[in-house]
Write a protein that binds this DNA or RNA. Structure first.
Length: 348
DNA sequence: AAACCGGGGGT
DNA sequence: ACCCCAGGTTT
């Protein structure tokens, strides 16, 4: 039997139930899921775990049930709803993409890999995933799970990312003509639940008898990766000003760069040493505790300073009335600073 | 090709 | 502390 058939048989009984997925029930054979749901979930799943995505997927589809609804949303609403999920360029591209689908494609996502690739936020992985899962096309989907499964199945020792083309070619050979979407999801489920990064459960794997790494005893050591550089530490100051009427002084960060497009507390750029740059003159109080946060490529230590101020015009940022501010709209590092300040307000 | 871009959970 | 994750964009 073909390897793909063995895996599809396993998927029919072991597929995880996910909100955007049509279960492989006998009564629903051939049913395809909503392309809007697949696109939204796949963008959210970029470098993000299923557990984290489920809550956000539900919130987005409840608030914006169709791509038309999302396309009509305001930028700040979408950025706020995305807060906490990370990689905020995804949220900006999500909204751009929704508006392009409505304006240029009549509200229908393109069906082909190339058509999907032309949209913002959709790269090789997501284009193949949408074409296969939402439209049933035989496209080869390669994500981190599938790289790991292929490296083990064929005992490939070439380190990533150099090994990527080789692993993609191997994955393409296995991709079936029929049920390519189920097949892609099956390999990803296999990687997520059985062929895990550490301690793979080879005894439960439908591909165990074919797996070369299992025979050679190398499965747990694959895939190989290029060595990583260690993260430097940066320092900064967050200024949290509260006006007498309860308004908070916040700034919208520029679209490009770190935390692009998100709300945050004013302060100088983070660097090797903290730089004082208060947004206005006030009696700033330094909090006894600091915020520690780790980004993709550096650690951050953030000192938090607070002040209560009168109605002044700040040098940077603008006051947001209390009824228009929700801490849920903040990215996590800014939320951590807020939580420290909130504790101080309660203590006083 | 390499750098940039979050956050959380597991180990 | 280090690993990983249903990657894409920019330089």
């Amino acid at each position: 039997m073909e390897l793909s058939d063995a895996l599809l048989g396993w998927y029919d009984t072991h597929a995880r139930a996910l909100p955007w997925r049509v279960p492989p029930d006998e009564s629903r054979v051939g049913m395809l899921p909503d392309p809007y749901h697949i696109w939204l979930s796949e963008v959210m799943l970029q470098q993000t775990t299923v557990t984290a995505v489920v809550k956000y997927f539900h919130a987005f589809t409840t608030r914006w049930p169709t791509v038309h609804d999302l396309a009509a949303a305001k930028d700040a609403e979408v950025m706020g709803q995305w807060a906490g999920l990370g990689y905020y360029a995804r949220a900006r591209n999500l909204l751009k993409c929704a508006r392009m689908v409505v304006a240029d494609h009549g509200g229908v996502f393109p069906e082909t890999r190339d058509g999907l690739l032309s949209l913002p936020g959709i790269g090789p992985y997501t284009a193949a995933a949408i074409a296969a899962i939402a439209y049933g096309h035989s496209e080869t989907v390669v994500d981190g799970n599938i790289e790991r499964v292929m490296a083990r199945l064929y005992d490939v020792h070439t380190p990533l990312p150099v090994a990527k083309p080789e692993l993609t070619a191997l994955a393409a050979i296995l991709t079936p003509q029929d049920r390519a979407g189920d097949y892609a999801q099956a390999v990803m489920d296999l990687g997520a639940t059985i062929c895990t990064p550490k301690s793979p459960a080879c005894g439960l794997c439908p591909w165990s008898s074919a797996c070369k790494a299992r025979v050679n005893g190398t499965a747990a050591d694959l895939p190989k990766r290029a060595p990583k550089t260690r993260k430097p530490t940066r320092y900064g100051i967050a200024y949290i000003a509260r006006r007498n009427d309860g308004a908070w002084l916040l700034e919208r960060r520029p679209d490009k760069g770190l935390l692009g497009g998100m709300l945050g507390w004013p302060g100088a750029e983070w660097g090797a040493k903290p730089i004082a740059q208060p947004p206005l003159n006030a009696d700033w109080q330094t909090l006894p505790a600091e915020v520690r946060h780790t980004f993709t490529h550096f650690h951050l230590r953030l000192t938090v300073q607070m002040a209560t101020v009168a109605d002044e015009t700040p040098d940077t940022g603008q006051f947001l009335p209390a009824d228009q501010f929700s801490p849920d709209d903040l990215p996590t590092v800014m939320r951590k600073a807020y939580d420290l300040a909130k504790d101080r307000l309660i203590a006083d």
